[in-house]
């Protein structure tokens, strides 16, 4: 028979000091979700089909607006660019929410959380999935925009990197927030998982500059990280340069949102463990 007493405790205490995330556990979850995409048509449709449709709709609208010959306004670049970047944001948010919901729907959540998986590893896996999704959808949309509407996203140059990263992080933060709401208030809060970003859209200056908003709403706009990305996008189109103030604004506001919303997520998880609702999620 084995003795579990002091030696194991000591060894464990030593181990606890090097308290790191494990890549193999993150990878396990990523592969688990990739298995799904391998054969699920509805999933692939959801990811690729709707963005393409949206792109076509806005693409033709932009062509029409361009025909109206408004001086100094290239609708294709401004509107299509906005459509594409906005879509990346929603992709990120959905990737995070759905990665969580998938396990709730399949009643697999407890299986995952009786393993040594940490919450941070779970989050990391969803954010990596979101990044993969953004890159895949982004590439496809960029190609379609290029071949159908002659919009070359490379005009954004290196600004593309901060744009995409900021959209990824804010989308993930909102995804975490909706996940936390579902944890707390049950799957009836699921609609939020898909609608939350629409609440943000009017104020994030996606298709129009912040300056058209009433003063009060301008303040709201500048609280939101995506605002800086879309203002930045228009600035690059107009001047070829990304003003460092906008970049800084995006980063600072994103850090604030991410910290607050992931704190809320951790907090919700703790509350749910306290209330014993983890096994009553469905």
């Amino acid at each position: 028979m084995r003795c579990f007493s002091p030696s194991l405790v000591d060894r464990n205490l030593a181990k606890k000091k090097i308290n790191t995330m494990r890549w193999y556990r993150i990878q396990a979850l990523i592969i688990r979700h990739l298995y799904l995409f391998k054969r699920s048509m509805p999933r692939l449709m959801d990811i690729f089909f709707w963005p393409i449709l949206e792109l076509l709709l806005w693409g033709f609208l932009s062509l029409y607006i361009n025909k109206l010959n408004i001086v100094g306004f290239n609708a294709v670049t401004v509107l299509l660019g906005a459509v594409i970047f906005w879509d990346l944001l929603t992709q990120s948010q959905r990737a995070v929410s759905v990665a969580f919901l998938e396990d709730v729907w399949e009643r697999n959540f407890l299986n995952i959380f009786v393993s040594p998986l940490r919450l941070s590893e779970f989050l990391a896996s969803t954010i990596i999935l979101a990044l993969l999704r953004i890159v895949a959808v982004g590439l496809l949309m960029a190609l379609i925009a290029f071949f159908f509407y002659h919009l070359n996203l490379l005009i954004f140059g290196f600004s593309l990197i901060p744009f995409v990263l900021n959209l990824l992080v804010f989308g993930a933060a909102v995804g975490l927030f909706t996940t936390a709401l579902i944890l707390r208030y049950g799957t009836s809060a699921q609609v939020l998982a898909f609608g939350m970003l629409f609440l943000v859209q009017p104020f994030a200056a996606v298709f129009y500059p912040v300056s058209v908003l009433p003063q009060m709403l301008q303040w709201v706009a500048y609280l939101l990280p995506p605002t800086y990305v879309f203002e930045g996008m228009r600035a690059v189109i107009a001047t070829g340069m990304l003003p460092s103030g906008l970049l800084l604004g995006a980063i600072v506001s994103n850090i604030i949102f991410f910290v607050l919303l992931s704190w809320y997520f951790y907090r919700s998880f703790a509350v749910v463990k306290m209330k014993g609702k983890l096994l009553k999620l469905d």
């Binding site: 688990r32 298995y35 399949e106 299986n111």
Partner: peptide
């Protein structure tokens, strides 16, 4: 609790083994 129905048995087991 159940293992995801939309994965193959092998895939489910591999996920948890990992």
């Amino acid at each position: 609790v159940s293992l995801p129905g939309n994965l193959r048995v092998r895939e489910n087991l591999a996920t948890f083994a990992r």
